[in-house]
Amino acid sequence: MKVLSLLFLVVLVLATITTSTLGQGTRVGFYTTSCPRVEAIVQAVVQSAEQSTPGVPAGLVRMFFHDCFVNGCDASILINAPNSENTAPPNSLLRGYEIVNAAKTQLEIECPGVVSCADILAIAARDSVLLAGGIARWNVPTGRRDGLVSRDTDTTNLPGFNDTVDVQIRKFAEKGLNTQDLVALSGSHTLGTSACQLFSYRLYNYNNTNGPDPSIDPSFLPTLRDQCPNGGDGLRRVVLDTGSQNTFDTSYFANLRSGRGVLESDQLLWGNPTTRNFAERFLGLPGLVGLTFNVEFARSMVRMGNVEVLTGTQGEIRRVCSAFN
Score class of each variant (00 low, 15 high):
Met1Ala: 10
Ser5Ile: 15
Leu9Ile: 08
Leu9Gly: 01
Val10Pro: 02
Leu12Lys: 09
Leu12Arg: 09
Val13Trp: 03
Ala15Trp: 12
Thr18Gln: 08
Ser20Gly: 15
Gly23His: 11
Phe30Trp: 15
Thr32Met: 04
Thr33Asp: 08
Cys35Ile: 11
Arg37Met: 02
Glu39Asn: 06
Ala40Leu: 13
Ala44Lys: 13
Ala44Tyr: 00
Val45Gln: 02
Ala49Leu: 04
Ala49Thr: 08
Pro54Met: 09
Gly55Val: 06
Pro57Arg: 07
Pro57Asn: 01
Gly59Ser: 02
Phe64Cys: 01
Phe64Ser: 01
Val70Tyr: 02
Val70Gly: 02
Asn71Met: 05
Asn71Trp: 05
Gly72Ile: 15
Ser76Met: 08
Ile79Glu: 13
Asn80Thr: 15
Ala81Glu: 15
Pro82Trp: 12
Pro82Thr: 15
Asn86Phe: 00
Thr87His: 00
Tyr97Ile: 06
Asn101Pro: 06
Asn101Ile: 14
Gln106Cys: 00
Glu108Thr: 10
Pro112Val: 07
Gly113Trp: 03
Val115Ser: 04
Ser116Phe: 10
Ser116His: 13
Cys117Pro: 04
Asp119Met: 05
Arg126Val: 12
Val129Asp: 02
Val129His: 02
Trp138Phe: 13
Trp138Asn: 03
Asn139Leu: 11
Pro141Ile: 13
Thr142Met: 03
Arg144Pro: 06
Asp146Arg: 05
Gly147His: 04
Leu148Met: 09
Asp152Ser: 13
Thr156Gly: 04
Leu158Ser: 07
Pro159Thr: 11
Gly160Pro: 08
Arg170Val: 14
Lys171Ile: 11
Lys171His: 08
Ala173Asn: 09
Ala173His: 01
Ala173Thr: 09
Lys175Cys: 03
Lys175Leu: 11
Leu177Gly: 02
Gln180Tyr: 00
Asp181Leu: 11
Val183Asp: 00
Ala184His: 10
Ala184Tyr: 06
Leu185Ala: 10
Leu191Trp: 10
Gly192Ser: 10
Thr193Glu: 07
Ser194Tyr: 12
Cys196Arg: 10
Leu198Gly: 00
Leu198Trp: 10
Ser200Asn: 13
Asn205Lys: 04
Asn208Ala: 14
Thr209Ser: 11
Thr209Leu: 07
Asp213Ile: 09
Pro214Trp: 07
Pro214Asp: 11
Ile216Ser: 00
Pro218Leu: 05
Pro218Arg: 05
Pro222Ala: 03
Thr223Pro: 01
Arg225Trp: 04
Cys228His: 07
Pro229Cys: 00
Asn230Trp: 00
Asp241Leu: 02
Asp241Thr: 04
Gly243Pro: 14
Gln245Ile: 11
Gln245Cys: 04
Asp249Lys: 05
Arg257Tyr: 07
Gly259His: 07
Gly261Glu: 14
Leu263Val: 01
Ser265Trp: 09
Leu269His: 02
Asn272Tyr: 06
Pro273Lys: 11
Thr274Met: 06
Thr274Ala: 05
Thr274Trp: 00
Thr275Leu: 04
Asn277Trp: 05
Glu280Cys: 01
Arg281Gly: 02
Gly284Leu: 07
Gly287His: 01
Val289Leu: 12
Val289Pro: 00
Gly290Cys: 06
Val295His: 06
Arg299Lys: 11
Met301Asn: 07
Glu308Trp: 09
Gln314Pro: 00
Cys321Ser: 03
Ser322Cys: 06
Ser322Glu: 15
Phe324Ala: 02
Phe324Trp: 12
Asn325Pro: 15
